[in-house]
Nucleic acid binder design. Structure first.
Length: 677
RNA sequence: GCUCGGGUGGUGGAACUGGUAGACACGCAGGACUUAAAAUCCUGUGAUCCUCAAAGAUCGUGCGGGUUCGAUUCCCGCCCCGAGUACCA
């Protein structure tokens, strides 16, 4: 995602000489363009050329016009007297359009002819110069060489203004739209004719370089790089103005602190809020009134966290060398292109200055998913006149009726079944509502949307905590699925987690719910259950897979319940392992087990002992031609050849062999046996 | 258009590094306990076919190919959904 945002494009920069027009001599143009009359990198006056950036310099023989952004600095000097009215009108029209309109309006073709021409450097053809708002002043040079046969925007523009469209590649199909292909061989391209894309590009760049009119170039585009904000909350910029020129304030006067102001609004004259400050100046000189954007601080704040009370420097070298970088960054993917990109950028800068040790600021990044809303609907019956009635049709039956869909509060719906009584109480207008039911129940429709009050799909966690407790909510959030996945909030499965916690509690209690834990030595099976979960949770935490841990806890508690296990030696360790997932209930049980209250967080995580998990037999799946047929219990002490003999000799397998001898037998010890017939 | 995710039962999801697809949970169905309900417990639950039953067979991880003894997993080509972004030459 960041690659896309940086916007690297590999291409070439090409200069198109402006054709001398009889009505405006080069001299006049030079005087008009004033400060632009500098020499360019090519050793010629900049204003005698229009420079463009292109990623397809190979298509230069297909150029049939040139387009400048309306804001381009050469527009006034290029406009001939006959075209002045049209150009002025067009510029006025684009200025009126907001940035948003311009984007929304992307499909409408508009533009105006300046009356001037440039010379195509490869074939000396005169090419008309237009202006159009599809060319952006802020990107490249604000000018494009238009190749209507290869670029769709140029194509539409050419069609609209009746400009020629010249095919330049033999296999190009340009009947209905532009064809940007790189396959095929060049035509209508003079010295490039017959060459392919790679050869042609090299050749044309060589040609332009020899003439001093072009060179290969890589363009970058950095968005949102503006560093000033006209608002109060932000770091003030340590700059003052003297004779209208900006100067940095002395280092000894840092940090510059935000001044107090009466209200956080622009001044009456339209200055930013800092303009309201009284006596806020630098030795009598005015400060810059903009403040820094949010990403100024967010691009390096983790270093400040390392040494927050340091009033001498942003953080001491000692602190930075100790903490170095951020081990794990968890955040939403909406930060991937903004905050996280700039953070890397700043960090590389700080590294180059030798102020920080690491090239990259974050070791690991996780984008957590978003919880979406899950809306429920009821379906109101419509009468012949098209008016809504007070009768509601269950979702499965709506095809048989004419209905309109209405959002219903998800808090009066359970597992998509509407609580009819609560619905009647929900709003006065529904108090006499009638229902057409399916098997006695009203089924609601479902849709995934943003969580929003207007959609009545907002679920308040407090309600869930009141009903099931904070541990249930916490575990259910983990149980829902992988951390990185977005999904709708849906409490349909919450009962399972709630039941699990009660079952867990019951392990420590007898049938009358008296606390009862035994000090007997644990059995092999109990130790196996415990150590399976110790290992599983350790692995799962390492890969941030919390949903699978919760499942495994359920398995462990189910097994221990079946074993009727109430042994301290097992349960105390289980409490420790479960405590990050269900801290409240575990803290309670920890204390009941006789430990000092509040010390569970300091308990040592139990040590996994693989010996308890050692098996001496394994139920090998036996497959025939890759398809699983049966399981055979075989000692794990046997080696591949012995396993093969055992399997082929067993009567259950002989049935599948049908008297034939197998072509091949694959044995993977401890995993599988596959017989190929 | 581009970039990044994702597609597995009725549902949320599991499957380590190519090795028993559907763990765990919800829902549903049936049963036990109960005057009843709640709670709790037990059994079943991918689809199709076959059978009185037991058992069995075939298909099955978005679609089409490929590699492999073996593919949800690897490769090639598509389709669909979600998020972000966009006249960027």
């Amino acid at each position: 995602m960041q690659r896309n945002w940086i916007g690297k494009s590999v291409g070439a920069s090409v200069k198109f000489p402006i054709a001398a027009s009889p009505k405006s001599s080069p001299k006049e143009r030079t005087s008009e363009s004033g400060p632009n009359n500098q020499t360019s990198g090519f050793g010629l006056p900049a204003s005698d050329f229009i420079e463009v950036f292109t990623t397809r310099v190979d298509t230069i023989f297909g150029v049939t016009f040139m387009v400048l952004a309306p804001e381009h600095e050469l527009v006034p000097s290029l406009t001939t007297p006959e075209q002045k009215a049209e150009i002025d009108a067009y510029i006025a029209q684009t200025k009126k359009k907001s940035e948003l309109d311009r984007m929304a309006d992307a499909k409408t073709v508009s533009g105006a002819f300046t009356g001037s021409y440039v010379i195509n450097p490869v074939n000396d053809e005169k090419v008309p110069i237009y202006i159009a708002d599809y060319v952006l002043a802020g990107y490249g040079t604000g000018a494009v060489m238009a190749v209507p046969s290869g670029d769709q925007r140029d194509y539409l523009f050419a069609k609209h203004f009746g400009l020629p469209i010249v095919p330049i590649i033999d296999i190009q199909n340009i009947e209905t739209e532009a064809d940007p292909t790189k396959e095929g061989r060049y035509i209508n391209s003079d010295f490039m004719n017959g060459l392919n894309y790679k050869e042609g590009t090299a050749k044309v760049i060589e040609f332009l370089e020899n003439k001093g009119l072009g060179k290969g170039k890589i363009n970058y585009r950095m968005r949102d790089a503006i560093f000033g904000r006209q608002r109060y909350w932000g770091e003030p910029v340590p700059v003052y103005f003297k004779d209208d020129l900006p100067h940095l304030i002395e280092e000894k006067d840092l940090p510059l602190i935000l001044p107090e102001i009466d209200k956080y609004l622009p001044t009456e004259t339209g200055e930013p809020p800092l303009g309201r400050a009284h006596d806020w100046n630098y030795n009598g000189f005015e400060y810059e009134l903009s403040t820094m954007p949010g990403w100024a601080g967010s691009s390096w704040y983790w270093y400040r966290y390392m040494d927050a009370r340091n009033d001498q420097e942003f953080a001491s070298r000692q602190a930075i060398d100790y903490w170095r970088d951020v081990d794990l960054y968890i955040g939403g993917s909406e930060h991937a292109t903004g905050h996280l990109l700039y953070s890397r950028f700043w960090n590389k800068f700080l590294k180059d200055l030798g102020l920080v040790p690491e090239e990259e600021p974050f070791k690991k990044l996780i984008n957590q998913g978003h919880i979406q809303g899950r809306s429920n609907f009821v379906y109101r019956l419509i009468d012949e006149k098209g008016a809504g009635t007070n009768t509601f049709v269950s979702h499965g039956l709506i095809k048989q009726y004419k209905t309109s869909e209405l959002h219903v509060d998800v808090n009066i719906v359970e597992n998509d079944i509407l609580d009819i009584e609560k619905f009647r109480q929900w709003r006065d207008e529904y108090k006499d509502a009638e229902f057409i039911l399916e098997a006695g129940k009203y089924h609601c429709g479902v849709e995934i949307e943003k969580m929003s009050k207007s959609k009545y799909n907002v679920v308040n966690p407090d309600d869930i905590i009141a009903r099931h407790g904070a541990d249930t909510l916490r575990m259910y959030e983990m149980f829902l699925g992988p951390l990185e996945q977005s999904k709708p909030w849906n409490t349909n499965g919450i009962e399972g987690v709630y039941k699990f916690l009660r079952k867990f509690w019951k392990l420590f209690h007898d049938e009358q719910l008296n606390f009862r834990v035994s000090d007997d030595a644990p059995s092999k099976a109990e130790l196996k259950s415990l150590h399976k979960i110790i290992r599983k949770v350790e692995e799962d935490i390492d890969r941030f897979s919390f949903n699978t841990s919760v499942s495994s806890f359920m398995i462990a508690v189910n097994e221990l319940t079946d074993l009727k296990c109430n042994k301290r030696a097992i349960l105390q360790d289980l409490v420790i392992v479960l405590s990050p997932y269900a801290p409240h209930i575990c803290e309670e049980l920890w204390e009941m087990l006789g430990n000092k209250a509040g010390t569970l967080s300091y308990a040592v995580y139990p040590k996994f002992n693989p010996e308890y998990l050692v098996e001496d037999e394994f139920a090998y799946p036996i497959s025939v031609n890759g398809k699983m047929k049966i399981n055979l219990n075989i000692s794990l002490a046997l080696e591949a050849k012995e396993i093969e003999d055992f399997v082929l000799a067993s009567p259950e397998v002989k049935k599948y062999l049908d008297g034939k001898s197998p072509k091949k037998v694959i044995v993977v010890k401890g995993r599988i046996v596959n017989i190929v017939l």
